[in-house]
Simulated assay, not measured.
Amino acid sequence: MHERSVVPGLPAMVFAALTGTMAMMAYVAVVGPVVRLLGLAEWHAGLSVTAAGVLWMLSARRWGSLSDRIGRKRVLLIALAAYVLIYVAMAIFVDTALARPPALWLSVLVLVGTRALVGLFYAAVPPTAAALVADGAAPGQRASAMAKLGTANALGMVVGPAAAGWIAFHQLSLTLYIAAFLPLLALAAIAWRLPPDAPLRTAATGPRARLGWTDARLRLPILAVFSAMVSVTIAQVTVGFFAIDRLHLSPADGARAAGLALTAVGVGLILAQVLVMKLVGVPPRRWIALGALVSGIGFASVALVGARWELLLAYAVAAFGMGFVFPSFQALAADSVQAHEQGAAAGTVASVQGLGMVIGPMLGTLLYQWRPSAPYLLVGALLLVLSVAAVRHRDGAMA
């Protein structure tokens, strides 16, 4: 059966994932210039991103459980509406502050606070979307639908910064206004296209789910998401420094090389997830085993890079493997729990994703200061452990 009929509202969820990720990444693209123009320090930008990751980690599990109780669509509408309002407030503040800079403490408070709240409310979208797929798709068939969401996220990661950079060249504050408009489009799509009855099918069945990070059924999905997020965030935060130091580039050329490397990441992710969509019958744990091995080889090979094309190739290979891992840990989590636990399971996995977003950048920069190749070798070893764990994992579906 075609996925459009199996998972009601999936195209709307794919669109929401695309526009939501574009809006999230647009901020990352412009926060540097905004911080400089407002006279803030670089660590203030890092603090805003970290704060968003912390609130994501703390809230994702609760959002998933809430969607089990009150329905998927209601949670998505609440979260996206708040996301829009906060982003608009941030855009208005930045626009006003660039014309008449306020006190430094106020700029820091607003930038960190609004970005943290964006993380808090957008944390509802990935687990609720994953639970929605689990509601509609049968066990063993979920990785393909999850890959559609993953492809949308990957495309948003590529298009968002590129579009934001082009718009910011003409008017910096306009970038944030347009970014705020994107989740508004997502909100309209969810309200219009997501059926009101489909999200509520599992809301009243079974007791209230209380899944945690130590639940034995979720051990492999949790290890997979943690390893994947730590690996990806380490690679993101170190690539600019690595290009400058290892390839002996100027800061401008290093930034350009880093941008090309991250574009290669987006392309690799999209190609891999298209393959996952096509090969529907492959169990999620096999995708994880293969993807972690390929990605681990790609990341570890960065330690040997001596030319720009080698850096792009290594990042593309790493991303291609990661494209197998991302939709598969979500599908494996869904296959491992009961129907009334889908939101809680997706939220638990998403909360570990937030933890990886917090730990990865700090760990990566600390290791890089010790030795530039160290972060990449660590990531390679971590993904090798994940690949072995996936090979040893036994398949089993519960919902």
Rank of each mutant, 00 (worst) to 15 (best):
A162Q: 04
G281K: 15
L106I: 15
F169Q: 09
V282T: 14
G119V: 08
D245H: 12
P183V: 06
A51C: 13
P327D: 01
F15R: 01
F169C: 00
L262C: 03
V84P: 03
G46T: 07
L260D: 10
P8L: 03
I234S: 00
T202P: 03
A131E: 08
V325L: 13
P139L: 06
L149I: 15
L40V: 12
H340P: 07
I244S: 07
L200M: 14
A397P: 05
F324M: 08
A143Y: 03
G296R: 07
T50P: 00
A318I: 13
L185C: 12
L383R: 10
G165K: 04
T96E: 13
G39V: 05
G53K: 07
L211S: 05
G296D: 01
A243I: 03
A331D: 05
A82C: 15
T151H: 00
A186C: 11
A60Y: 01
A51N: 08
A307T: 14
W309K: 04
L80S: 11
A154Q: 07
L111Q: 08
V75Y: 00
V75E: 04
A346K: 00
L109P: 00
G356E: 05
M229L: 11
Y27M: 08
A189P: 08
R201S: 09
F93H: 11
V385G: 10
F329L: 11
P221I: 04
M157P: 06
Q273F: 06
S65F: 08
V352E: 05
Y315K: 03
L98K: 05
P327L: 08
A350G: 10
P199N: 13
E310K: 01
L155N: 05
G321T: 09
L109Y: 00
M1P: 15
A399W: 06
H2F: 02
R208V: 15
P126T: 06
S227I: 02
M25P: 02
L312H: 14
R285C: 06
V94I: 15
A124W: 03
A257S: 10
G259A: 10
L174R: 05
L367G: 08
L279Y: 13
F181E: 09
L155Q: 06
V305F: 02
T202M: 11
L149Y: 08
V14L: 11
A339W: 12
T238D: 13
M1T: 15
A79P: 00
P196K: 13
R210P: 07
F241P: 01
A316L: 15
A257K: 06
I222H: 09
V379Q: 01
A29P: 09
S301W: 14
A381C: 12
L311G: 07
L271C: 13
A390D: 08
D197T: 14
V133G: 12
V267C: 02
A163Q: 07
L382R: 04
D245T: 09
R308M: 09
S387G: 15
L80D: 14
H44G: 12
I222S: 04
T238F: 12
W192N: 05
A316R: 07
P33L: 00
T50K: 04
T175C: 05
M57D: 03
L269H: 03
L176W: 00
M398N: 09
M24W: 10
L367E: 10
G343M: 12
T202S: 15
A45E: 04
T205Y: 06
Q369A: 12
V385A: 15
G323F: 07
R371G: 02
A191S: 06
R286Y: 10
A91W: 11
G113Y: 11
T202G: 12
E42G: 14
